[in-house]
């Protein structure tokens, strides 16, 4: 990463943040990578987007991005939603970096709510936008207490939650942001990705970074780290399945969005990952 002497449009420093801030965030990232799944506090800056729009993810990306990087930004799997478009334009403007909507062409993927279907490589980094980093916040509102629970690996209450679900509904009903155990030590919240995506986090070749701007936390999963979704041995973790395949590309192994097409209740299922869908269509068309 180069020291930002380049000035981009509007006189911003490279990637908007000043160099000292980037250093501070990189230090936090290094700590986070050294302790997989552990939430590292950082001094979250005011960004030109309000909280709730991915300021944490943006700060992480801004701290790691360099002029030779190629950035992909997705929101719910799509490159063309408002959030994704805004963030991509933000980096284009303040860092002048190349952007892409092809997962396989990106060196950094910033995401909200999905992991791309295309498997990531060792030379890629994925940055997640996180609203609430603390997996036990629903149970314990005091920060001091949750920190202590992490320090002492006191995770019994999380299993109480799973137990309750199974007792009440016969299965664990958590469908997204499903808690995971990282490297066998820290309990982590993977951000609101569907549980369908949890297995992708396990032993990923890519570095995974998580940023929560409002809550001021950064955490990380280094490449090839075990990430295991919480479950019981007699009620193992399962992912979603559809009876349909994608109406556009025919995929039956990707996360499908349900689209209502008219007001008589007709519906379509299409891949949530637009890039994946397009790749598959291109392959089919070529056949």
């Amino acid at each position: 990463m180069s020291e930002g002497e380049e000035q981009t449009a509007g006189g911003y420093n490279f990637a908007y943040l000043d160099e000292q801030t980037k250093r501070m965030i990189r230090r936090a990232i290094l700590k986070a990578v050294a302790i997989p799944g552990y939430q590292v506090p950082f001094a979250s800056r005011e960004m030109p987007l309000p909280f709730g729009w991915g300021t944490g993810g943006i700060q992480v990306t801004a701290s790691i991005i360099g002029p030779n990087d190629r950035l992909k930004v997705i929101d719910q799997g799509a490159d063309d939603t408002t959030n994704a478009v805004s963030i991509r334009q933000f980096f284009a403007k303040t860092a002048g970096v190349a952007t892409t909507d092809r997962t396989s062409h990106a060196s950094i993927v910033q995401t909200r709510h999905r992991i791309p279907e295309t498997p990531l490589r060792e030379d890629q980094i994925i940055v997640y936008q996180v609203p609430i980093p603390e997996p036990m916040r629903w149970l314990e509102q005091r920060e001091a207490e949750t920190r202590r629970m992490h320090a002492l690996a006191d995770y019994g209450p999380m299993y109480v939650r799973l137990y309750e679900d199974i007792a009440q509904f016969g299965r664990v009903t958590t469908a997204y942001d499903y808690p995971v155990m990282v490297n066998g030590r820290y309990l982590m919240r993977p951000s609101p990705i569907p549980k369908f995506d949890n297995p992708k986090m396990n032993m990923s070749a890519a570095l995974q970074l998580f940023g929560a701007g409002r809550e001021k936390r950064i955490y990380a999963v280094p490449p090839y780290t075990s990430v295991k979704s919480l479950d019981f041995t007699d009620h193992p973790f399962t992912i979603e399945r559809w009876d349909n395949s994608c109406a556009i590309c025919g995929a039956n192994d990707s996360f499908l969005d349900e689209v209502i097409t008219d007001d008589r209740g007709s519906r379509l299922f299409v891949c949530s990952d637009t890039d994946y869908c397009r790749q598959r269509r291109a392959v089919k068309a070529a056949e």
Binding site: D154, Y155, G156, P157, Y159, V160, Y163, E164, I166, A167, Q168, D231, F232, T233, D234, H235
Partner: peptide, 24 residues
């Protein structure tokens, strides 16, 4: 706010019990 069964099972889960049927 948590069921009686979960209340009783919590200590077991806290020390590593991971079989729902046995805990119950």
């Amino acid at each position: 706010g948590v069921s009686a069964g979960a209340n009783v099972g919590e200590r077991l889960m806290a020390v590593g019990a991971r079989h729902y049927g046995e805990i119950r």
